[in-house]
Design a protein around this nucleic acid. Structure first.
Lengths: 194, 194
DNA sequence: GCCTAGATGTCAGCCGCTGTCATCACTAGG
DNA sequence: CCTAGTGATGACAGCGGCTGACATCTAGGC
């Protein structure tokens, strides 16, 4: 007779998403989420530092795939090239099968400012981490920060488009396109300003 | 005999910054801030939607100066040129005299993740607003979003550097430099990737 | 002096979140 | 088979952020 089933964080996370999607984030209580999987509120907060984290837990894999991409880039690559590599690497973590789930999750986030805030915070953390990895490659701080932030911006925009589109273009294709659009914008600035 | 002095939001904001700076954000209670200026907790929350807002109230002027810059740019300007104009316009709202105050404020933010989250959220809102202004100028959505996000990124990085530096370089000079660095990064990507 | 609008006070209450301590399941060692 | 230790959970009390509802007060127009 087990007192607790294994995988408490995952079960809580799943229940949280379902409840958030149906009742809404604010209308869902941490105690309710816990109760839905046979646990108590106290235990919920042992697994998640706060209620929002139930939606953001497990993002480390995304960070790692970015870092893998940074590592995989050839040593001679310019900072933004490294970032482009990281973008492709990260895109691999969002195959087409995941779109439905990502869409549901995103719809919850889009309906709540507090969750948008947290999402943005996670992206910022990601940018900071990527910037550090770039510096470790010898890129100077300003270039590293700019390149990392730009990469995360491209990723964020691409991800939204990936969820929005009807066709099944891969996320990698979209990041390529958005990345190219960024370079094009830069190229349109007259040399007088550069 | 007045029951209340005028300028309650400003007095609350000032008291909040002082208390946050000395005791720390979490160690300061909304009731304490209110009490410090002779008001009640309930009144505090009538002026600020939440405790963090006491630090971020009044950012609309920054948004407006960005928008003014967008408007001031010549119609023929490319998206990133418009953004560069907006950056100069926004920089004007941070004269050298303001550095001490901005530094104190930033030190409070830097010590608290919840405040960093809110700060980032404000920047995102700013980017969204600038993107809308660009679209109103006829820029397509992708370019507008990218340009706006890039501009806000440049602003954020520049602002931090402005606070950090010892010399009294103007914020406008720094944004110019950071902006140029971004263009340079884009130029370093080999044409094969563009 | 009266009266309305807007700002504030008072009070009750929910919920997010935390510290503390007890309890239970599982495991290793005897 | 018993026992002690480890780790996850439960139970409970409590603080602080935040809100709704209603009373109260002040300033300004009449």
């Amino acid at each position: 007779m087990v007192r607790w089933e294994p995988g408490a964080p995952e079960r809580l996370q799943k229940a949280a998403l379902e409840l958030f999607a149906t009742r809404g984030f604010e209308q869902t209580t941490a105690a309710e989420i816990a109760e839905a999987v046979g646990l108590t509120e106290r235990t919920f907060f042992r697994h998640f530092s706060d209620k929002r984290e139930a939606l953001f837990h497990g993002q480390q894999v995304l960070v790692d795939s970015f870092l893998d991409g940074v590592t995989a880039a050839p040593p001679s690559a310019a900072p933004l090239e490294v970032v482009a590599t990281a973008l492709r690497s990260a895109s691999a973590f969002f195959p087409a099968e995941r779109r439905a789930h990502s869409r549901l999750r995103q719809s919850v986030i889009d309906r709540n400012p507090a969750l948008q805030e947290r999402e943005r915070h996670k992206l910022t953390t990601l940018a900071t981490t990527v910037a550090a990895a770039l510096r470790a490659r010898g890129v100077d701080e300003l270039a590293a920060t700019l390149a990392a932030e730009s990469g995360v911006t491209v990723f964020g925009i691409s991800f939204i488009r990936w969820l929005r589109e009807d066709e099944d273009r891969s996320l990698a294709d979209i990041t390529d396109e958005v990345f190219a659009a960024l370079l094009k914008l830069a190229g349109e600035v007259p040399p007088a300003r550069r």
